[in-house]
Design a protein around this nucleic acid. Structure first.
Lengths: 202, 202
DNA sequence: GTCTATAGGCAGATAGAC
DNA sequence: GTCTATCTGCCTATAGAC
């Protein structure tokens, strides 16, 4: 059973076919597959063929839903971030620990595009970096809110420890060092959260 | 005048041509161009044609020096990191401030592959991630040594604030937010450096 | 060692049948 | 809307002349 078949009520066209809903559902399936593949392999590492095959379609159907691969990429990372956001714990402690965990690295559950694509996005154009910026702000807001602190420099450090920590740990080839990076960042982020802002921001 | 012509004593073949030195010099020129282009555009974003053209050669000559594009990539990031390492200040304060600066982002001086390629490397194979790991360890050692502290969790946090901070700031599309990220990370890294380890690592 | 030429493959995007 | 077929272009890697 393909993953997308479990995430929503997929109406077989022959049964009912409410055309506009079918269209939206197909679009979501493409976005789901794209989000998964892009996060794992980056923009250049994934072809439209692969995305469509993973969504159970062929290449030709792609352009009925999106104008270009770039547009798909921009939408897919937002789609995936929202999808993951729904599963985030509202508790700041648990959110940070879950993000900076070894399970997050071995992307069976799938990784966060903020970390897995951070340098990939730095090479892309404005459209795509806008998408990235918006999902970054959303997670930053969630971190700040769940820590009961404003969105300040302290929040940004926590974000960089989370996003950068996962990205670095994934790049490294030395499992012990990767683990040490995750733990160091986790300690640092939790510590930063407790240190309420005034005396820290001189 | 091309950049590689200024980095070393390039011997024109017709003048002297000490063959083995000429070969090494050509190889270095390729590595220099590759390091620059890969850091800017990532592995998939650069073709062998582009690298060789930038080095003043044509594609055919490439395989007299390297066996594959992957091998070039692995060597180029090490080459570039060593090259940048020679310019690093030995003072920890200056090193951190220079790394987390806006000048580093606008890669006219050229960026650090650790930050600019962090998620790119996470998608590559063992050979390449090994190169990345070795240059990561070298910079970490330099950070620890120049701060007169051991290579511990505190050093790893500084490394993630530096590498992650630059990578995130480069990905973001909002200049004010990018600057805030750099400053927050800079403050955090300098602060971490002052906090000597014992009471921090509970 | 470096060149030109080319093999062989894959990608993004489009056209037209159904 | 989805399919197959195709246009067009670029890529890695190799072959062979000089």
């Amino acid at each position: 059973m393909k993953a997308w078949q479990s995430i929503g009520w997929y109406l077989e066209e022959s049964i009912m076919s409410w055309p506009s809903e079918h269209r939206a559902e197909t679009r979501n399936r493409i976005l789901y597959s794209a989000g998964e593949l892009f996060t794992e392999k980056g923009f250049s590492g994934v072809s439209i063929d692969q995305v469509m095959a993973s969504a159970g379609l062929t290449r030709g159907a792609f352009y009925a839903h999106f104008n270009s691969k770039r547009e798909l990429y921009a939408e897919a990372i937002v789609f995936r971030a929202q999808q993951m956001g729904e599963k985030h714990p509202s508790n700041a402690d648990a959110l940070i620990r879950g993000y900076l965990s070894t399970e997050h690295l071995s992307q069976e559950k799938g990784g966060c595009p903020l970390a897995f694509l951070v340098s990939d996005i730095g090479q892309q154009d404005q459209l795509i970096r806008e998408s990235y910026t918006s999902i970054f702000k959303e997670l930053a807001k969630k971190v700040a809110d769940s820590s009961h602190q404003p969105m300040d420099a302290s929040t940004l450090r926590i974000m960089v420890l989370m996003v950068g920590g996962v990205a670095v740990a994934k790049a490294l080839n030395d499992p012990d060092l990767s683990l040490a990076v995750l733990e160091a960042c986790c300690d640092g982020a939790l510590d930063e959260r407790k240190t309420l802002s005034p005396h820290r921001n001189k």
